[in-house]
């Protein structure tokens, strides 16, 4: 899953623009990733200008990838 590091986000929307699942919600100064839809593709993590996001592959998702 993708973890949002506290306090670092600038709410710029870069991650939302590259998310193929459209599963990131951004409202003024709040960001939320809908885990059930997220496929852990990691694009949002690389696109983030501030290094706010971190990809932690959970066991279940890892199994699916293999």
């Amino acid at each position: 899953m993708v973890i949002i590091k506290d306090g670092k986000c600038d709410f710029c929307g870069c991650c939302v623009g590259v998310c193929p699942e459209n599963c990131i919600e951004l409202y003024e100064a709040e960001i939320k990733i809908i885990d059930e839809i997220c496929t852990d593709c990691g694009k949002c993590v690389w696109a983030c200008p501030f290094e706010v996001l971190e990809l932690r592959i959970t066991k279940n998702k890892k199994d699916e990838l293999i």
Binding site: C14, G17, V18, C19, W46, A47, C48, P49
Partner: peptide
Amino acid sequence: TTCKLQDMESAV
């Protein structure tokens, strides 16, 4: 309208 990662300029 999803932007490809290589086309998204990540800016500061």
